[in-house]
Structure formats: structure tokens, C-alpha cells
Amino acid sequence: MATRLAPKELMKQPERLAPGHRLCAGCGASIVVRQMLAAIDEPVVISNATGCLEVATTIYPYTSWRVPWIHNAFENSASTISGVEAAYRSLVRQGKMEEKDVKFIGFGGDGGTYDIGLQALSGAVERGHQMLYVCYDNGAYMNTGIQRSSATPFGAHTTTSPAGKKIPGKQQFRKDLTRIMAAHDIPYVGQAAPSKWRDLMEKTRKAVNCGGPAFMNVLSSCNRGWRHATDETLEITQLGVDTCYWPLYEVEDGEWRLTYKPREKLPIEEWLKRQGRFRHLFKPQNRHLIDEKQEEIDRKWEELLERCGEA
């Protein structure tokens, strides 16, 4: 029987990510990984795109992974795990290996997923591999020093979209990758956040048991890039959820479902004002950008409500 999704039960399971990794204090990525892996009882095999999570957890001769793990390159976490899964299926089919209901998971940050790895991800899920691809989305290339990606929110300051005298941070709205993945018509797509751990864990379980390719997009704070205190990680993540910047929903066999509806949808300012990367937006000459951002969030939220039959 599956372990009950209660911390008291989960903490009895073996810890799959060992301490001693060198992610920054308060990093969201390792929280996401720990929660997701704790939700899976079956054996897992992981591929990891180049990025903070990969670099900081496997500085030779140390590894934090107590599960089989492979890093290949930046843009190919999805194709790498698809190869591992193909090998498994082949070996099992030929009787060269015992079948063990192994769960194959690819991890990548937003740079490795939204940008450079999008083609490999699209190809891998189209081919129907039994794999879960997880994007831990912290909204920039944090590992190389906070450069903008197509996941970076509108108006954010990054080192390649700096808030300058003329241009106030990133000029484009972010790519909606979750919807792009839903458009692949794969069995499971979910958007989640570690501040709602049960929701994240339930989605993880559905994803690895959907019988085909699954994708999850998980909001993951980077306090160095977002500019907040190390202990505010989950609080600010939840503000992202409650302002509907990051709605929690899933698309299961084409059925869209909102999995969390904020009791009160907070204005986006509540999320922005807590992060240094948006500080410049509060200058009088930039306030209109907050309004634009709010409009965009409202528009997308309404659209999502409609898709989920909640409108």
C-alpha cells in the first residue's frame, strides 16, 4: 500500500537526497526534490539537466543522490531519461532485467526546460516514454548568475534584463510552458508549488502513475535571484500562488482542474513587493508596469477558470 501522504509517515521512509549538497541556504529546488521523491514509493531513476540542482548536488567526489542519477548536459535531461527508459523497457522485454515499476524522472530548471531543452522535452513526451519531467521554475538562469530566461516574469530585474534608466527590467511576459505541455495531449500535466506540499505530492503520484509521459512545472524560489531572506522561501512561493501568478492546476487526460483556489485572490503587488528583483517597479514612473502585469495575470486567471469549468 502506498505511504499515506502525511509527514509523520513520510519521514519514516528513506531520505533520497542526502544533506551535504551545496545549494544555497533556503533554496527552493531541494525542497521540491525532497517533497516529490518522498511522494514516490517505487524505485526512481533520475536524469538532471545542467543547473544549480545538478551542480550543487554532485561535486565530485561527492553525491547527494541515494538513487540512480545521471547528468548528461544542459538541454537534454528529457532525451537522456528517454534513453534510460528505453533501455529499461528493452531489457525487461528481453528478460535481461526484472520488471520493478521503476519511475523515470527528468529534472531541469527553467533555463534547461523552457529555453534550451524545450525541443528535447517536446520530442520525448511525444514519443510516449513513461517518464515524468519536472521543471523547477525559479524564473532565471540562476546557476550562471541570474540571467533572464523565457520563464522570467515581466518586469523582473535579472543580470541580462537589468532595471536600467531607460529599460525597467524584463520587457516580455513569461512563456506559459505548462499550457504548451498540455497542448502535447499527454496523460498528465500539473502545475504545483512546494508551499502546498500535499498538492505537489498528490500531483507527483498521479504523474508517475499516469501510464505515459507526464510533465510538472513547480515554482521554486531562488532567494539570491528573487532577492528575499532565506527563511521566506515558502511564504513568498505561496504568495505567488495566492496572487494567481502561479495557479495550481492539473490537466489529466485532457480534463483541466483547478486544485487550489485562493480564498482571496491577492493583488500581484503583494508578491512583487516582497522581492528585490521587482523593487524598481514601485518607482512612480514604473507603477504602470504593475498594472499591466496585474491585467495579464487577471486575463490568464479568467482563462484558466474557464478551462477548469470554474468561471
Binding site: 544533506p19 549538497h21 551545496r22 541556504a25 548536488t57 567526489p61 553525491t63 547527494s64 538513487v67
Partner: peptide
Amino acid sequence: GGMILDAGNSVEYDTGDWR
């Protein structure tokens, strides 16, 4: 090939002194 055979050996690495 850079393989690490001792899974989870990062426990030997002290990150407590960052604190």
C-alpha cells in the same frame, strides 16, 4: 567516467560551517 559509486556520500561534506 566520473562515476560516483558511494551514493549519498555528501553526508561527509560539512555545510554546517556556512551557517
